[in-house]
């Protein structure tokens, strides 16, 4: 029978906290940057101009339909060779994860916008609003309410996806625990603690999302 000894992890607490900080900070960056890419992707795919639509759809499908691990490796190893763009592991993984998340955010935002009844933008136009005004005042405020649960879910997935950046030696929680596991010869305790740490952050978040969903459903 295996003898558990979680006490040994205490001496690595600063390493873990450091890694957790990188993971959380990284998530904030890729969620925000991903939302920016998502907005461009969504409005691009709804553009009046066919060329813009095609460009946006190409971006969305390229990142949505390839594995994120492949994208991470590709951004770090292939881009320097193909384009001569040298990137630090952090830049490469932030870019890859943001674009990957952005492709999913695009679809969520686009879906939210087109779910709003056409009569709403028509009523705005009939009042004399420009398309931009009716998007900002009429369509988006209603669409955002519908998007929020899906955007939150995608962000939760993004939080977990940051664990993949350890393959590029970005010192996140998973990378630091690899260090701790090698040093302490206690991989079981280490990775159990890591799993608990992810869950401890995400479970309260999912409860919040579920509450929000219910509240929004009542408002419909």
């Amino acid at each position: 029978m295996y003898q558990w000894d979680f006490g040994i992890l205490w001496s690595y607490r600063w390493l873990f906290l450091n890694g957790l900080g990188v993971t959380v900070g990284f998530t904030v960056v890729i969620v925000l940057l991903g939302l920016v890419f998502g907005l461009f992707g969504a409005f691009g795919s709804l553009s009046r101009f066919k060329a813009v639509r095609m460009l946006a759809l190409t971006f969305i499908e390229a990142f949505r339909c390839t594995p994120i691990l492949v994208q991470l490796i590709w951004f770090y190893y292939a881009l320097p060779i193909l384009a001569g763009v040298e990137m630090t592991p952090i830049t490469a993984s932030a870019l890859a994860l943001s674009l990957y998340g952005g492709s999913f955010y695009s679809e969520i935002i686009r879906g939210g916008i087109i779910s709003i009844d056409k009569g709403q933008s028509e009523a705005g136009a009939a009042l004399g609003m420009t398309p931009v005004q009716s998007m900002r005042r009429i369509v988006l405020p209603q669409a955002i309410k519908r998007m929020i649960p899906a955007l939150m879910n995608q962000s939760i997935i993004q939080f977990k996806n940051t664990s993949l950046v350890s393959v590029l030696a970005v010192p996140d929680l998973v990378y630091q625990s690899q260090v701790a596991a090698h040093d302490s010869y206690r991989p079981l305790e280490t990775y159990t603690a890591v799993a608990v740490a992810y869950a401890a952050i995400l479970i309260p978040l999912t409860i919040l999302v579920r509450r929000g969903e219910k509240r929004l459903a009542v408002g419909e």
Binding site: A123, L127, G128, P141
Partner: peptide, 24 residues
């Protein structure tokens, strides 16, 4: 263009079959 159209539509009021009030 869109701006000319918007200015023009501001001078006519329209009422729709399905009201199209802004629910928010």
């Amino acid at each position: 263009d869109v701006r000319t159209l918007a200015t023009f539509r501001a001078t006519t009021g329209m009422v729709f079959q399905h009201f199209n009030l802004f629910p928010h």
